[in-house]
Write a protein that binds this DNA or RNA. Structure first.
Length: 424
RNA sequence: GGAGAGAUGACCGAGCGGUCGAAGGUGCACGCUUGGAAAGCGUGUGUGCUCUAACCGGGCACCGAGGGUUCGAAUCCCUCUCUCUCCGCCA
């Protein structure tokens, strides 16, 4: 969430930012509740001071006729405090709920626009792959080569689940190893994170764990959820901590499963492995000083490009528009890989996303660092190294051969142990 | 899952209804001492909110978390979480 004083002191800018993002949030309510809360805090503090003072007067022995009026005064104060406190709790709760709807401020250079069509293409690696034959989409390829079984998964687990089979299993493992090795060489600490996290961590990261529109699977009666990304578990890693400024930036790489409800998502653009309820992903996460977050964001983008260009997968980079940013992000870049089987004649499909969330998540999660005796919130950034299911789409569709086989990208062969799949 | 023990500041550790934001020690910072260092001595050393022009100085809160008893709770009671030991089960 944003700093409440910032909201109060920059109400117009905050309102404009909300409008630019096409979101709904009530700035005036936040300011009103903030001031109401502050005045209630003042009131409770004063009443408590009186209570403490009153209690302090009767420490030693004293005759009952002196003690009794003090006890009576104490009882009266106790009731008043209880009443003001209950109002304070109520106002605080409302304030938190309203304030959490206010998105992060957007980077001044982030393109203003409503939806993904308004994203700004800023660079490209390779072009749409050309074929001397009619390319198949990954669903067809996977069926022909017996690599993915959607039908059985639908029966056993439900729609949008899948079994990876045969070489696809090794492809998944190879992609995660390939990505982790690159990240480790760049100073990211490799981790495998829990696949479950507490609701409060989800909320701190900026996810809404409940409700029909939520993309999160909540686990009944546990206060926990399946994670939609390791961003949650990596971002929660230092929650409530004050970090040593000398150890910043902290760069972590996390492998986890990702679970997404994707309620209502269907259609041509979501077919096959593109939008599924479960996939594996290697995520990058960085904690850094505020002044470093812009340059580290560029670094994360560079790493993502290195991973995909290293696989010879054509992609373009887009600077995400304000309407498509998501609440916690200050700025976001996506890599969109060329997917020959997407749409009529192939199309770009998102394979990575990197966001600079500045101090928006750190404030709720309480992640700070100490410098010159002062505590400040760190900046937190995240980025996809490889979302395996979508990377598999890009590989199958771009590297398909006329005979129906798949050529494995050279950089991956040491990890897969084979250089082609099929033909069958 | 069963039985027991525990959770106090950066760390160790006392306190078990008011004199406790919390003894003592360690660490750390600064100063004195020294040719320099060590030792020694002295001083200081949490976080958040809030009042204020001001981290000058006040106020409030925080002793795992939440609730309760009380005029008053680190101290008493309840619930929960976590850690440790033993048993059971198990990848």
């Amino acid at each position: 969430m944003l700093d409440l004083k910032f909201i109060r002191d920059n109400a117009d800018a905050v309102r404009k930012n909300i409008a630019d993002r096409f979101m709904e949030a009530d700035v005036d309510a936040v300011i009103r509740l903030f001031e109401e809360r502050n005045s209630l805090i003042l009131k409770t503090d004063e009443l408590r001071r009186q209570r403490n003072e009153n209690a302090g007067k009767m420490k030693g022995k004293m005759p009952p006729e002196e003690r009794e009026p003090l006890v009576a005064e104490g009882k009266k104060l106790k009731e008043e405090i209880a009443e003001v406190e209950s109002r304070l709790n109520q106002v605080t709760e409302e304030l938190n709920s309203e304030a959490s709807r206010i998105p992060n401020m957007a980077h001044p250079d982030a393109p203003v626009g409503k939806e993904d069509k308004d994203n700004l293409e800023i660079s490209r690696f390779g072009g749409p792959t050309s074929f001397s034959f009619t390319p198949k989409d990954h669903v067809q390829i996977a069926a022909d080569l017996d690599l993915v079984d959607f039908d059985t998964a639908a029966r056993v687990s439900g729609p949008k689940f899948y079994y990876l089979k045969n070489e696809a299993v090794y492809l998944e493992l190879a992609l995660t190893r390939y990505a982790l090795d690159i990240l480790r060489s760049k100073g990211f600490i490799p981790t495998i994170t829990p696949d479950i996290a507490k609701e409060e961590v989800l909320e701190g990261i900026g996810f809404n764990p409940r409700g029909d529109e939520s993309n999160i699977y909540a686990l009944e009666n546990t206060g926990t959820c399946l994670v939609g990304t390791a961003e949650i578990t990596l971002g929660g890693y230092y929650s409530g901590n004050i970090l040593d400024s000398a150890e910043l930036p902290i760069k972590m790489a996390g492998l986890s499963h990702c679970f997404r409800r994707e309620a209502g998502a269907a259609g041509q653009y979501s077919k096959g492995l593109y939008r599924v309820h479960q996939f594996s992903k290697v995520e990058m996460f960085v904690y850094c000083r505020p002044e470093d977050s812009d340059s580290i964001h560029q670094e994360l983008l560079t790493v993502e490009e290195e991973i995909f260009s290293g696989l010879d997968i054509p992609y373009r980079v887009v600077d995400t528009c304000t309407g498509d940013l998501g609440g916690p992000a200050y700025r976001k870049y996506d890599l969109e890989a060329w997917m020959p089987g997407r749409g009529e004649n192939g199309d770009w499909g998102e394979v990575t996303s990197t966001s600079n969330c500045t101090d928006y998540q750190a404030r709720r999660l309480g992640v700070r660092f100490k410098e010159d005796g002062k505590n400040q919130y760190v900046h937190m950034l995240n980025g996809t190294a490889v979302a395996v299911s979508r990377a598999i789409i890009a590989i199958l569709e771009n590297f398909q051969q006329e005979d129906g086989s798949i050529k494995i990208p050279a950089a991956l062969v040491p990890y897969t142990g084979f250089d082609t799949i099929g033909p069958k």
